[in-house]
Computed example of a mutant assay.
Amino acid sequence: MKPFLKTALAATLIALSGAFSASAEQIKVGFSPEAYPPFYSQDASGNWGGWEVDIVNAICSEAKLDCVLTPIPWDGLIPALKTKKIDAIMNSMSITDERKKEIDFSEKYYNTPTAVIGAKDQKFDATPEGLKAKIIGVQASTVHAAYAKKHFTDAAEIKEYQTQDEANQDLAAGRIDATQADSIALDAFLKSDQGKACCDLKGYVAPDLEVLGPGVGAGVRQGDTELKDKLNAAIKAIRANGKYAEITKKYFDFDIYGEESQSN
């Protein structure tokens, strides 16, 4: 190919790329920059990946949105959304009535059980009786913290952490007796060398729809129906066209979506 033809072809490709970028609405998607495998994990180069990152990319591609992952500390996500520092939250945030007082949610994009794990040498279950007089670690500002405070009132202490990883580390070190979180995230810890050595599954907590909600959805500002509708349509589309299943099979041997129901 002659040089001028190469240049013309390159210019055409750049123009087409620019036209696509110009047509895609850019939104900032907030997430807490902490390891939460297999949903969010950071590689040696500092890039984020995982099931939820792949799902975010699939939803944004389907909705023709140019989504930029924007790191925000967990307890700052909702304030950042309300003050327009970000446009959406997609970070395993459960849909709850309490949160819906401040923000809106898309329909759910996954729903998994809530589990309790503890030291292997301690025998107890995930009930108020089983956790009586125990020190329970939970991540602050989560549904798990709210659940523990409501249901495990006879615990010796409900200890709150900024990240789930900190709770896991204290459990492994013997500074707490148990921790409650999403079952998939805790399963990833139990499969790690550290988790295998120290801890095991104690059980799943009893359902509480009011506290735990119907699943995880994308948080959007109240009244932002345009973005909410785009996300809902995209979630429905990737479920229907097989993209959701394709991504999920890379990480799980089951469908983590849960029951087919509306979350809103």
Rank of each mutant, 00 (worst) to 15 (best):
T112P: 04
G137M: 06
D97W: 07
T142S: 09
I78A: 03
P71K: 14
V53E: 05
N111Q: 01
I55H: 12
N57H: 15
V143R: 08
T96V: 11
F124S: 00
W48Q: 00
S94V: 05
G76N: 12
V143D: 09
Q122D: 09
G46K: 14
E62I: 06
P79D: 04
I135D: 02
V138N: 04
Y110K: 01
K123S: 15
C67S: 06
N111L: 03
P79Q: 05
A126Q: 05
S94T: 06
Y110V: 03
A133L: 10
I135A: 07
K64S: 09
A126G: 07
S92F: 12
D66E: 10
A119G: 07
I136A: 01
L77F: 09
S94K: 06
I72W: 04
K82P: 02
K132Y: 08
S45C: 03
V53W: 03
S141Y: 14
G118C: 06
Q122I: 13
A80P: 01
L131M: 14
I86H: 10
I86A: 12
P71A: 14
Q122F: 07
Y110E: 02
E98H: 04
G130T: 10
A88D: 10
N47Q: 11
A133E: 15
A88R: 09
A44H: 10
W48N: 03
K132Q: 15
Y110S: 00
K85G: 13
E102L: 13
I78T: 08
Y109N: 10
L81R: 08
D121H: 14
M90F: 07
Q122H: 14
A58I: 13
L77V: 02
P128D: 08
E129P: 02
N111Y: 03
A44I: 13
P79E: 07
I55Q: 13
I136Q: 02
E102G: 10
P71Q: 11
L65D: 08
I86P: 10
D125C: 09
T70S: 15
T96S: 11
K84T: 12
P128I: 13
I55F: 15
I78N: 01
T96A: 11
V138Y: 12
L69H: 07
S106K: 10
L65W: 09
L77T: 05
K132E: 11
K84R: 13
W48H: 01
